[in-house]
Each structure stands twice: as C-alpha cells, then as structure tokens.
Amino acid sequence: MKPQDYITSGLLELYVYGVLDKHENEQISSLINKYPEIRVEVEDIELILMELSTEISPAASPQLKSSVLKAIGSTEVDEAPRTSRSLSVFGVIGWAASLLLLGGILWLFNLNSNLETEVQVSNANLDTLEEQLNQKERVIANYESTLEVVRDKDVTAYSLPGNEPVAPDAYAKAFLDKKNNKVYLDLAGLPKPPKGMVYQVWSLKLDPLTPTSIAVLDQFNSDQDKIFEISNLPETEAFGVTLEPEGGSKSPTLEQLYVLGTV
C-alpha cells in the first residue's frame, strides 16, 4: 500500500482511537515516522476528536485541578487563577513598556530633529564666521600690502593739504612709486561725496598748468581703506582731487578743489 492508500483506508482513525490490534498498531507507528503525510493526517484526526470530546465536556468544577494536583502529592498549587492574574499583570507591564518605548522613540525622534536643526544653524553660523574671517583676511592682506607700500624705499610720501576755501579740514596723502610709475592715494581724510557727485583725481603739470585726469573714484564710498592705486602716471608735479558730477569731467572744477599738493 502507498501512503495515500493508508490515509484513505480508515486505519489511521482506528489508530488514534487506540483500537487496532498490536501488529497493526506497530505498522502504523512506523509509517508515521516514515511518511510525513501520514503523520499530518494522524494529527488532523486527533484534532477533530479532541474538538469533539471538548465540546461534550461539561465545565469542570473549579477545584478539580487543585484536587488532582493534591492527589499526585504535588506541591504545585492550582495556578489557574494566579496565572490569569499574572498574565494580566504582564499584559499591563507589556502595554506600559510599549507606551514607554513609543514615548522614547518619539522623544528620540524629536531630539534628533532638534539636533539636526541645531547642526544646520551651527553650519550656517560657521559659514558666516568663515565668510567674516575671509573678509578680515582680505582686509589684513590689504593693510599688509599698504604697509609694504609705505615701507617701500622707492616710495615717497607726500601730503596733500585741504584747500582752505572749499575743505579746510580735508587732507590726503600720496605715496608715489616713481620706479613703477604708480601712486597710492590715501583719501581717508576726504568727506563723503554728496549724492550724484564723485571725486576725480588729477595729475598736474605746473608750468603751464596742465591737468590730466588720472582717475574717477566712483567706488569711493564702498572702498574700505580709501587707498587708491593709480598706475601709468603721466609726468606729474602735483596731485589734485576735485568734486565732479557723476562720470567725471574733462577738466577740473577748481571751485570744488578739495586737496592739492606738489610732489
């Protein structure tokens, strides 16, 4: 017989009932170990039989289990009521633990997003600080180069005093590098030009008086150190700075001459 033949024969049911003779019983026992499908069938039969007799069973008296346990001399007490209570305690602890865990997860999530925000803010601050640092470095580099100019043995410093009728308090300095034909004009002593007006720098020859425009300082207000480098100088005997309308003029407006000095 094949396993399937045993399954349909009805012998397995009688095996679970325990009503087969010894020989048949041994035969089925060994088949169960050999064929999983037979074992599964036997278990299914057992299940329906247990179901059937459980349905028939009346509700046992509550003290029956204790009495059975006592009869075998067990020191175990009937755990049924305590088990159900301890289960509910475990249940409560379980729920509490779940809630705590959930709370913890939410707290961590919140903490994490706060930290992320803080990191973003810190990064932004860092960027700002880096930018400020770069700016300071640029300023320092600028000062250093200015200092180098001032110290340069080939550079001569000249004062450009204020023009008494127009700007008595104004002053300027010229650092003339004859070797490289350059001038660094320090105009920090000039007032802020009015709106629509710019300073214009002139190179002057004195005899005859011949002005040549060498720079229109339309970036005067935004310049940090007010030191202006002007290259490719013509032959110069004096520097003058006048206030001119925006864009500059072809010839200096002498009524608006702020500083003038010979070199």
Partner: peptide, 11 residues
C-alpha cells in the same frame, strides 16, 4: 492537565 483535561472529561 490544562491541555488535555477538558476533552478527557468529555470522553
């Protein structure tokens, strides 16, 4: 006992 007592009582 918990697993089998009910259906054994039925039998």
């Amino acid at each position: 006992y918990d697993l089998y007592s009910e259906n054994i009582l039925g039998v």
